[in-house]
Write a protein that binds this DNA or RNA. Structure first.
Length: 256
DNA sequence: CGACAAGCCTGGTAGC
DNA sequence: TGCTACCAGGCTTGTC
């Protein structure tokens, strides 16, 4: 499912294919995918314009269309497809942008957890939705992370899932980060030692970057989400439980 | 056939 | 009282 690394991939895909072509038409195949904007308004405000740049924050993609920004959120089954032949339209295309010149960009999403919307300003959106820092933002540092964790009595897993501290990690990457850092998902955020917070930030960045780069996941828990699986790190037996409302896997032997 | 999984929002409650 | 934490429920649909 699309978390930060996958959305980074979509952002690059969008940048590579969908910029600098006048938008001839916008076809909303299923209005349930839309956020605030109505289908007619989406089409009216984009038609004749071009996407000039695209950026990402956490799991959100923002494309600049001049007077407005297109916002895409990929939910759990969202994807982009760029193609010329209309018969190549994906089965679950929800919105299709048709460019002058005949190319198409489809936002597809089988399970409709994603969102297509039009907003005025990405930074205002990020602020109003209380999204935390993007973990790959170089300006985001250890000092700031420590400050964010201070006084938070909730479980670290819940906090990393919430998007309000750091934006972009979903269930799988939170588990992976805690696994590789050796931190138990139920640890109180406030009680993490300085070294653990440092490892947390460095590890999540390394994991996200490795995924973006398509590196192999040797020694990760990522592909072993199964109760009773062997811990690739220490030979312990992986445990499974619902934590923060999500299926959570961890190694009780080395995550403490 | 029903249960389940996912991300994220909403609304309610409990506790300091 | 106000804040924080935390829970259930809803949305959707392919897969088990």
């Amino acid at each position: 499912m699309p978390e930060l690394p996958e959305v980074e991939g979509y952002t690059r895909y969008f940048r590579e294919h969908a910029l600098h072509q006048p938008i001839a038409r916008v076809d909303v195949r299923d209005a349930r995918i839309l956020g605030e904007v109505r289908p007619e308004a989406l089409a009216r405000r984009l038609r004749g314009r071009t996407f000039t740049s695209v950026r990402r924050h956490g799991k959100h993609l923002f494309a600049d269309a001049g007077a407005a920004w297109l916002r895409l959120h990929f939910g759990m089954t969202g994807d982009l497809a760029y193609y010329r032949d209309p018969s190549d339209e994906p089965r679950f295309a929800r919105v299709v942008f048709g460019f002058e010149g005949g190319a198409h960009l489809a936002f597809e999403d089988m399970r409709l957890f994603g969102v297509v919307d039009l907003i005025d300003d990405p930074d205002a959106f990020i602020a109003s939705h209380r999204l935390g820092r993007d973990p790959l933002d170089p300006a985001f540092g250890l000092r700031e992370l420590r400050k964010l964790l201070a006084g938070r009595r909730g479980a670290i897993k819940a906090l990393l899932m919430s998007q309000e501290l750091v934006a972009g990690l979903g269930n799988l990457y939170v588990d992976e980060t805690l696994f590789q850092t050796g931190i138990h998902p139920l640890r109180t955020a406030d009680a993490l030692r300085d070294g653990e917070v440092r490892a947390l930030l460095a590890t999540m960045r390394r994991i996200l970057q490795a995924m973006i780069d398509g590196k192999p996941r040797r020694g990760w828990i990522f592909d072993r989400r199964e109760e009773g699986e062997r811990c690739p790190k220490c030979g312990g037996t992986l445990r499974r439980a619902t934590i923060a409302g999500r299926t959570t896997y961890w190694c009780p032997k080395h995550q403490r």
